[in-house]
């Protein structure tokens, strides 16, 4: 019997990535790089939740691709603001 299952490992990863995002935001580490780290963490968190909480790991590949596409699209759109501010300066 496994002591720590997929859901518990995912929970630990999600908490860690949330703390990393909070520290990155708190340290004032904004701009393209800071936003990139926070948004990449967000995509990894979303994907882990879909795979191990919603159990899409065992589900149809089309649904996995759909949700992954949704996550990446949102993260990319959120990156527009910092990218534009770099271009403006």
């Amino acid at each position: 019997m496994r002591i720590v299952g997929d859901a518990t490992r995912t929970w630990a990863l999600l908490v860690l990535l949330t703390l990393l995002s909070m520290v990155t935001g708190h340290a004032g580490f904004h701009g393209l790089a800071g936003s990139g780290i926070v948004l990449a963490a967000c995509v990894v968190k979303g994907r882990s939740m879909l795979m191990d909480f919603l159990k899409l790991r065992d589900g149809p590949a089309g649904w996995r691709a759909l949700f992954a596409g949704w996550l990446v699209l949102i993260a990319a759109s959120a990156w527009i603001a910092p990218a534009l501010s770099v271009l403006r300066n």
């Binding site: 999600l14 949330t18 995002s21 909070m22 990155t24 935001g25 936003s35 926070v38 948004l39 963490a41 967000c42 968190k45 979303g46 939740m49 996550l71 949102i74 959120a78 990156w79 603001a81 910092p82």
Partner: peptide, 10 residues
Amino acid sequence: VVMFPLVYLV
């Protein structure tokens, strides 16, 4: 999980 960074951090 998606809304938190979008609204508060990025």
